[in-house]
Amino acid sequence: MPFLPTNRPRAATVTAAAAALVLGLAACAPASEPSAGASPTRQADTGLPSAHVHGLTVSGDTSQVLLATHDGLFDVTNQPAAKIGGTNDLMGFTAGQGEGTFYASGHPGPGSDLPNPLGLIRSVDGGKTWEQLSRQGESDFHALTTTKSGIVASDGTLRTSPDGKTWTTVSAGFAPAVLAGHPDTDTVLATTPEGIQRSTDAGKTWTLEKSGPVIQFAAFANPTEAAGVEPDGTVHISADGGLTWTRKGRIDTEVQAIAAVKGADGKPRIWAATAEGIVVSTDGGTTFRPADAA
């Protein structure tokens, strides 16, 4: 689960982040029907289709921007946002290898016949339909990513899988807020209140990168280049898979999820779902503007 954003010094950030992790897990619940007269969307004020954004994915050619939310999966490339598939609370969400392949986890929504929690589910048609792979009724993976060798996920316990069906428990000693990977590398980044945990063997072993910033959200633009955002919105870029970071600009509102792809000019393009809508950077994280103005 993500930490709370803050402008306090690092020591205070760690304390607040740890508390936020506990509160976030306690608050997690299955999606439910809105009360009479209520709307599950916030399009009128932010353009976001749900108040709870858990994942953000952008296609490699930047033609499609998808949000995984408490109310299901939405295409927000254009407004109004378009719902894809049924209503499920997608707490964990990541793109897989192959066009239109996604993995997700969370809770079934109203009218869904999926088990609670969802375990690991997969779509190969862009999120329209989902198949049950494993751990149905057992795991709600809040952190989830893919690597060249398989899947890394956390339901409070860190686990790896070569195929999404068989799992190995990892004795890592931490619970990641976000897992960031890429289908073309076995490097994985895990964000924690203590700093970035980094794996180069698809999540089997981990090293705490103590000298870097405390990153809250991370995403790979390509197999070696990653973007990271601190709890206060400060943006960093890593050209070496999370070993070192270069400070760039800042996002001045609460961030809920990020995604990154490599632009035609070689610079990473970074999207962020924020409390005020989707913003994007086309200059490697130095400046951000509303996505509909990009």
Rank of each mutant, 00 (worst) to 15 (best):
E131G: 12
E131S: 14
E131Y: 09
Q132T: 13
S134M: 10
G137C: 06
E138A: 10
S139P: 12
H142F: 08
H142N: 10
H142E: 03
A143D: 06
L144R: 03
T145D: 07
T146A: 14
T146C: 13
T146H: 08
K148Y: 06
S149I: 01
S149F: 00
S149R: 01
I151L: 13
I151E: 00
A153W: 04
S154W: 07
D155L: 01
D155N: 12
D155G: 07
T157Y: 10
L158T: 07
S161D: 04
V170F: 00
A172V: 06
G173C: 06
F174R: 04
F174D: 05
F174S: 01
A175R: 14
P176N: 02
A177G: 15
A177K: 09
V178R: 11
V178P: 04
V178A: 05
V178S: 00
V178H: 12
L179I: 09
A180R: 04
H182A: 00
H182W: 05
V188T: 05
V188G: 00
V188W: 00
L189V: 02
T191C: 01
P193E: 08
P193G: 11
E194Q: 14
I196V: 15
R198M: 05
R198K: 12
T200N: 11
D201W: 06
A202D: 02
A202V: 03
A202I: 06
K204V: 15
K204E: 13
T205S: 14
T205Y: 08
T205D: 11
W206L: 03
L208H: 07
L208V: 04
K210Q: 14
P213F: 13
P213H: 14
A218L: 08
A218W: 03
A219R: 00
A221M: 08
N222T: 08
N222W: 00
E225Y: 05
E225N: 15
E225S: 11
E225D: 15
A226C: 11
A226G: 10
A227I: 07
A227Q: 07
G228Y: 02
V229S: 10
E230N: 11
T234F: 06
T234E: 04
I237K: 02
D240Q: 12
L243T: 15
T246C: 08
G249D: 10
V255R: 03
V255T: 15
A257S: 13
A259L: 06
V261F: 10
V261K: 15
A264I: 10
D265W: 09
G266R: 08
K267C: 10
P268C: 12
P268I: 06
W271V: 07
W271C: 09
W271T: 06
A272I: 08
A272K: 01
A272W: 02
A273P: 08
A273N: 04
T274L: 10
A275D: 15
